[in-house]
Design a protein around this nucleic acid. Structure first.
Lengths: 342, 342
DNA sequence: TAGCCTGACGTTACGGGTAACTCAATGCCC
DNA sequence: GGGCATTGAGTTACCCGTAACGTCAGGCTA
């Protein structure tokens, strides 16, 4: 690498303009304390030399906060999270903050390592997905003394702030709805990287509702794979191979549901006459399907924006509600049938 | 905000351990120059106080490079870019670098602003999507003296390094293929945020091939919207409303192609008997469709990884090929028909 | 004309690490 | 026991901005 990045510093500009670096600093920050003549000469040299300030020095000196916000999400393959991330980055960017991305790959180890590293860069705050993390990570976060927003899972006793939805309730509602539609043997296809995450919380709620309603979850299939189209496809194949009498399948998200729907269609089955399909998340693909996909709408973009807003409010010392339930809405759709009896 | 982040510094650890901060620094970096006894006592205090190094200080002092890599992509709603980003972040993370995300929203202005800001944080390097940027941005990049990888569009005379594909050729191949299939009136549906981007370069190549082959592009529809499912759906509606005799439609990407396919299917048309559909990018959704979608495969994840590898190589002063063509592969698929004549 | 104020700057110190240097104590050889 | 390398530390300077304070000339007041 360029042995000595030929960065132009304040003092070089100062030297060129024939003033002290303090004067240059004053001109650049525009607080006054210099003559118009000096300002013009300084700005001329700034342009000429292509001076770019070194924010490291400012933050390092403790004169100001950094404008980094660390944002961790599990992965980018799941559209659910990319939408949340887009909402966050959009809002943060508008207010001059930068997103430092962390992909935790659904492991606490990766998250802990990332937190340690990113904290060493003195971020202004962190936005983290999920509520379950290692004790060491929690301790570092507490010691860091910076705002932390935990998103996705609503955390009623957050480290600092939290915005998300109640995944248990969301799963429960879906379970109750499917039971209410008259389904008695219901399957579930999802992925499982570990047991402490939002999807498994939804599954818990789902099972509770289904079993409480007198039906049963015939089979929960948790594949160790990405939660996307093809996983839904082959997961459905596996599920039906072992449980041919299942009449309805709930999926971890809409992408998997679409994959599953493609599989059952390839068998010549019809949705919802032969089998019911329910997804989750109300992803964009659902907008072009011939039948409205039974799903659960979550305002992903809004969730991300809210998280960013809470962070920004905290950073400017405004009052912040520490726990925000962004809400969800069950979408009945037409990929499950409504039986008359019941 | 916490008035004075109670960060533990080296000297505090030094004070607690009864040594100088230089000794603590030596112990933490493990280069020797201290006794086992001292090491143990220092480490004990480090753990006790929860000391986290301040990387800002190190980089600021110029003793070492930062481990930030700025990565800009147009948006997160296009799966094409999220895959690239995932490839980049994965590789960078493995080698201890952090991704600072920038979403340029397809505008040079946003990219320029982001570049200016991110450069002030002294990143180790930048990875930028696309090859067209403002003169001012280019100048800043040149002055920065850090490695820059331009991705996506192959740039044969890059600022520094480039990895991507030849979009013109890719569009050309698709055009030639569709003409070869016997289509004579072909439509195109894409989006256009500005004219200087990869998609429009593909469109240029596509038109050239189609017209050179004696067929014609009956209508190019460039919507000012996100390049995703629903845009493909309603774009197709618009296209066919005005040009009912089009027999084949090429889309900017697979998501739009899928949206379009849903629209024509909703009209009762059959693919490819009544109309041909061709996408681009070979996105995951294609893996579950009943008919293989005619498309163009691009190794997105690999592209991202290559970009990161080139960056890492440059950062460790290894020789790097400055221009890498990652290649694409036309996927004939079965959503276009092959006519016998021609 | 001394005294005070103000505008326009310069000077100094600081932050948290690290390189480069200095220094004291110890061990070892002849 | 004196000379010399080795080990285990401490000391100083520096990186780039900014806060806080100092300086100095000129204008105004009493």
């Amino acid at each position: 690498m360029a042995e000595k990045t030929n960065k132009v510093s304040l003092s070089e500009v100062a030297g060129a303009a024939g003033v002290s670096k303090m004067t240059v600093s004053r001109v650049l920050r525009g607080g006054g304390g210099y003559s118009e003549q000096t300002r013009a000469r300084v700005m001329e040299k700034v342009d000429e030399l292509g001076y770019l300030p070194n924010r490291l020095a400012t933050v390092f000196a403790g004169d100001t906060q950094s404008t980094f916000i660390g944002v961790s999400i599990p992965d980018l393959g799941n559209e659910v999270f990319t939408q949340v991330l887009e909402g966050i980055d959009d809002k943060l960017g508008t207010f001059g903050y930068q997103t430092v991305l962390g992909l935790t790959q659904h492991t606490q180890k990766a998250e802990e390592d990332w937190i340690r590293t990113v904290l060493s860069w003195q971020p202004a705050g962190l936005i983290l997905t999920g509520r379950y993390r290692s004790a060491r990570a929690t301790e570092m976060l507490k010691n860091a003394g910076i705002p932390v927003v935990e998103i996705w899972d609503l955390n009623s006793s957050p480290l600092d702030m939290s915005v998300g939805i109640n995944h248990f309730d969301s799963g429960f509602d879906m379970g109750r709805y499917l039971v209410g539609c008259g389904y008695e043997k219901i399957g579930y296809v999802g992925t499982s990287h570990n047991t402490a995450n939002a999807a498994s919380t939804r599954l818990d709620g789902f099972c509770r509702a289904v079993e409480g309603g007198g039906s049963r979850v015939a089979k929960q299939l948790c594949l160790h794979d990405a939660a996307t189209y093809y996983t839904g496809f082959y997961g459905t194949e596996q599920l039906l191979a072992a449980n041919a009498d299942i009449t309805c399948i709930h999926y971890q998200n809409d992408a998997m549901a679409f994959g599953g729907m493609q599989y059952v269609t390839s068998l010549g089955m019809s949705v919802p006459d032969d089998i019911g399909i329910a997804g989750w998340g109300d992803l964009p693909i659902a907008s072009v399907l011939p039948k409205r996909l039974t799903s659960c709408h979550v305002p992903h973009l809004r969730l991300g924006q809210s998280a960013a807003e809470m962070m920004l409010a905290r950073l400017s010392d405004e009052p912040v509600q520490s726990c925000v339930d962004i809400g969800f809405r069950l979408i009945p759709g037409s990929t499950v049938r409504r039986l008359k009896n019941r």
